[in-house]
Amino acid sequence: MKTYRFRKGPVSFTLRKREIELALLLVVGLLVSIYFGLAIGDTFLSPASLAALFIGAGDAFEQLVVFEFRMPRVLMAITAGASLAVSGHLLQLTIKNELASPEIFGIVGGAGVATATFFTVFSDERTNQLSVPLAYIPIASFLGAIVVGMFLFYLLKRGVPPVRLALVGIGISIFSQGIVQFMMLASNVYRKNDIQQWLTGTVYAATWNQLKIMVPFVLLFLLAAFLIERHVRPLHISEATATSIGVPVRGIQRGTLLLSCLLAGIGVAFVGAIGFVGLMAPHIARQGLKLPYIWATLLVGATIVVLADVLARTIFYPYELRTGVMTAVIGAPYFFYLLRRMMKGSMR
């Protein structure tokens, strides 16, 4: 296998040819899907006319559509996709289980409960309007995710093994579905719709203002993820081996769990629970492309959500599906495929 070595002063690393090639391929893939995301819609733009918009040419309407509507939504898809994917990646490595994801751990469920509660509590029954600005919803969703995260963190600290934590998470997510259902029953038809919209998730309404808040957080969390990455990877072999080679296992597990919750929380805060990304993306990167790295997972996750959004708005044109519907349509069969693989593996 061809390997490039880089050694200069205190810095040293190796790159494998195959990995560089795949990285380029993934970046090109993401760029192509970004192009689709910017070009496809009510008005179709050729690469040339899109490029023209970027240098200031083209008409004002096209400028508006691309820079005010399509661009934020594509960027939102990238940001949310990357956060959810990396969150799932970290969880899967830590508990050594392919089926781990922010949904399974109940993190998304917690965000859902908080959001549904928010909609129900702050609904004005006379006007059928929300009694507080809609812009506060991301805060509620994020806090919901963090509360579940804190609970899981507490259990981990008390000595509950990470694998059992996943079972607790499944419990939490079922419980939270129940609560959300109850909230929906208790609220009027408008709020019911709002909650339903959040639960499916979409990048449809993304704005630059949302991105301005979200992106710095995501970058910060991703930076932390890159810093913790080389300590998490040995956990994928086993806790015993990780301990043997000198990984401070307890601390790393806690840090990883916290980081996954933050990433999942911010990932769903603005767009709702876009499902299956945290499950699929790390798996495609790791098993499909043999790239068990954060950068690969991040690129795959971003591309999936951008493409899901493109499909969601073109398949039944002029009607739009929600982004989360598309990821579920691809993700649910994928989940069963994984489940089957795992069952086969455990029977061998």
């Binding site: 050594k96 994928h236 086993s238 015993a240 301990t243 043997s244 080679i245 000198g246 401070p248």
Partner: peptide, 22 residues
């Protein structure tokens, strides 16, 4: 410290399963 100990002793558990694709 964990790393310091790991430079002085290595441990091989009884059951070892490598992740897929490694």
């Amino acid at each position: 410290r964990a790393k310091e100990a790991a430079r002085l002793m290595a441990f091989m558990p009884q059951v070892n399963v490598a992740p897929d694709g490694l």
